[in-house]
Design a protein around this nucleic acid. Structure first.
Length: 512
RNA sequence: GGCCCGUUCGUCUAGGGGUUAGGACGCAUCCCUUUCACGGAUGAAACACGGGUUCGAUUCCCGUACGGGCUACCA
């Protein structure tokens, strides 16, 4: 079997949304599984929609996700250039070749003329005007104008496009890896533009020519391409490449979390969820978006989540490393229907990865967040903090949101809960307990707890009344990790200072 | 409108001619516990509808409904 070569071919028109990342991922998985090559090709044939920085964004996203291409712009490869705008001549040459063979023709109709034809058709009750075998006879093209007039117009520099000549009456069968056989009839197909009047190819021509020249073996792309695949087959046929046409696989779309239709960047804004892998900085705040990275996702968790949107291994395992995905993935298991984006499920995946990570790795990811808030914790303390907090967070920023008091000290105490429990006798007991802890301080939470419990027993202090107050004294809140583990992370001096400070403040609550 | 694709718990899905239709997220209850989490247990929750084919259809076929995509000198 020939070397597997797959490509991810985005168009640099803005931020790449997660549907694109999923497409890239599936292509990457296939390449790795089959010891093949993963190619990045930039489809920048529409200069009207080209957005500066988009290509860099795409590559940066793939880098963060950990699925960089083997070939592509800036990555080397034998089949470049990998930007379609740099391959204009190649497309033109193939378009001309098709004119030569009669598979394509020149057309001189202006956009205005076509618009008029469309409106006319509409007025007559036709919902869609099609440039096809029937209508082309009434329009200005090399088929109706004759060779001489065509020559004359070309020489005069009149703008023209090159169109595919679709002959009616042909059945076109697309063998799709996820959908099976899909049949089309050429009667329904229009004479697609191959080469635009600015000399750039359309997607269809560029795509087919590049896939052939780059020796692509599998075309794995979104479902929105399924209808135009019929045209692509016709193109392979016209160019004499039908025998080694790539295999096709059309992926189900990713749908909005609510309502109808496919996921869009608007949904991100509307629902406060990420739809991009990393932040995109548009020209206005409304056009700028946080990504999965900024929401506090781990790349592997995002990939795992995305992999399961439209695919599953058939087993009950859900947590897959990239290596495991490579081994388990198959196009046959890709589902046919669209998958709704579920942010809760994404969070859950991330939580699983956070729980499984060790303190040192977490510290590396969490440190920037702590630093951002103006603190420079020691490595050992930060590691211990992460280890302690990791079971109560799903997203990275929650380490700060739920554990800021470790760094800032207690900002506000849960006053109602203090008032409910506080009294003079208890104060005395807690003060003595604090002194006892100072004397019998241990770096180990279990030993520390034993020391406290021993004291409490001797002085008839009940855990139910002591622990909540210790907790509030240390953290300000009733929620959080084990009291003695908190002390362990806080350290002796810090812990005792917090306790003693609280015993004084709690008195003022009681009298308030 | 035309063409193409799809439809199993709210969501992601497994399954497949005869099953108590399985798992996960979310939700609820309980257990664990000094709190919050984690973890564990339990529960509510699904085969779009109508016709066939068949001894038997959620599974196969055909319709209908609904959803989606395409229908540009955009990709």
């Amino acid at each position: 079997m020939s070397q597997v070569r797959v490509r991810f071919a985005p168009s640099p028109t803005g931020a790449l949304h997660i549907g694109g990342i999923r497409t890239a991922l599936y292509n990457y998985l296939i390449a790795r599984q089959m010891s093949g090559t993963f190619i990045l090709r930039i489809e920048d044939t529409d200069q009207g929609r080209f957005v500066p920085g988009a290509e860099e964004y795409i590559i940066e996203s793939l880098r963060w996700a950990g699925i960089l291409p083997d070939e592509g712009p800036g990555f080397g490869g034998e089949y470049g250039p990998y930007r379609q705008s740099e391959r204009k001549d190649i497309y033109r040459q193939h378009a001309l070749q098709m004119i030569e063979s009669g598979a394509a023709y020149y057309a001189f109709d202006t956009p205005q003329a076509l618009e008029q034809a469309r409106e006319q058709a509409k007025a007559q009750g036709n919902h869609a005007f099609k440039y096809d075998a029937l209508s082309r006879q009434q329009l200005s093209n090399s088929l109706t104008l004759g060779e001489e007039e065509t020559r004359r117009r070309l020489d005069a520099g009149e703008p023209y496009v090159i169109r595919l000549k679709v002959n009616p009456g042909q059945d076109i069968c697309v063998q799709d890896a996820v959908r099976g056989k899909v049949m089309f009839c050429s009667d329904e197909l229009d004479d697609k533009i191959l080469l635009k009047s600015d000399g750039m190819p359309t997607y269809h021509l560029a795509n087919v020519v590049d896939d052939h020249l780059m020796r692509i073996t599998h075309v794995v792309r979104g479902e929105e391409w399924l209808p135009s695949t019929a045209h692509h087959v016709l193109l392979y046929r016209a160019l004499g490449w039908e025998d080694d046409m790539p295999a096709f696989a059309h992926l189900p779309l990713i749908l909005k979390p609510d309502g109808k239709g496919k996921l869009s960047k608007r949904d991100g804004l509307r629902l406060g969820i990420p739809v991009f892998p990393i932040a995109w900085h548009g020209s206005t705040p409304e056009e700028s978006f946080k990504g999965f990275r900024e929401f506090g996702f781990l790349p592997q968790a995002m990939l795992n989540f995305l992999a399961f949107l439209g695919w599953n291994p058939g087993s009950e395992q859900e947590i897959f490393s990239l290596e495991e995905l490579i081994a388990a993935f198959s196009l046959e298991q890709v589902s046919k229907s669209g998958a709704r984006f579920d942010f809760d499920k994404a969070r859950w995946f991330n939580q699983q990865y956070l729980h499984a990570a060790d303190g040192a790795s977490l510290a590396e990811w969490v440190r920037p967040i702590i630093v951002e808030h103006g603190f420079q914790p020691e490595q050992a303390q930060l590691t211990a903090f992460c280890e302690l907090m990791k079971e109560r967070v799903a997203l990275l920023p929650e380490f700060w949101e739920k554990g800021a008091y470790f760094f800032t000290g207690v900002q506000t105490y849960d006053q109602p809960n203090v008032q409910k429990r506080w009294n003079a006798t208890l104060k005395e007991g807690l003060q003595q307990l604090t002194t006892h802890l100072e004397m019998y301080w241990a770096e180990d939470a279990t030993a520390l707890k034993a020391a406290a419990e021993q004291f409490m027993q001797q002085h008839s202090l009940k855990p139910g009344e002591v622990f909540p107050l210790l907790r509030i004294a240390l953290a300000g809140t009733m929620q959080g990790p084990d009291v003695f583990k908190m002390m362990q992370v806080l350290g002796c001096a810090n812990s005792l200072a917090r306790l003693r400070n609280a015993w004084e403040i709690f008195d003022t609550f009681a009298s308030a």
